[in-house]
Amino acid sequence: MTNRLTIAHVFPALLGTYGDAGNVSVLRYRAEVRGIRVSIVDVLPGDPVPATADLYVIGGGEDAQEMRATELLRADSGLSMAVHRGAPVLAVCAGMQILGEWFTDGSDSRVAGLGLLDLRTDRRSVRAVGDVIADTTGVLDLPTLIGFENHRGATSLGADARPLARVLHGIGNGAAEPVEGALQGSVIGTYLHGPVLALNPALADYLLTQVVGDLAPMDDVRAEEFRANRFQRARA
């Protein structure tokens, strides 16, 4: 087990509209409680993405910001190098779409993504907005995922990407299969906000474990109350 961790927060200024910066706050908090020293690199638009960080977090954003982030990432090799050496990545919503093969923009033309996830995203006619409950059994075998989706993507997975979870409530990827997110090697994609790691501390610990090894248990009373409150609403 290592006691240091560097998190690259990729373009929070562009991809941070939906509170997804909270994923980085949660990772830092849960690592620090375990005595791990955390440094966070907020990658600004125009700055290079570091290739040597331990963990990468990318959030969701609006259409114009998503386009700009895609352009910048396509001109930068940092993230691809990190993925090829197996660094864990969490990509939420627009972040997941950007990491795919392509997505369609507001005028229905295809925009090439980074090709780090075997998925393609068309545009839904109706926006998917609301609570999502999803089951990771057989994939990561974590406690049931819960989060809030707010997107217009219809994301279909290719053979190299596995669904992160099976949708029990809500829309999720919104293509044919009722599945949520994607898992391919060390990259996790999801449509869930909340932030997803605040509502699903086991997923946060899964990511941390990839870098630092086994983690000591911690008091999760507040996170459990947050989850219970949200499950209650989603199931009402």
Partner: peptide
């Protein structure tokens, strides 16, 4: 609004 994610901003 139903989503409280903004609290993290």
């Amino acid at each position: 609004g139903l989503d409280t994610s903004w609290l993290w901003d």
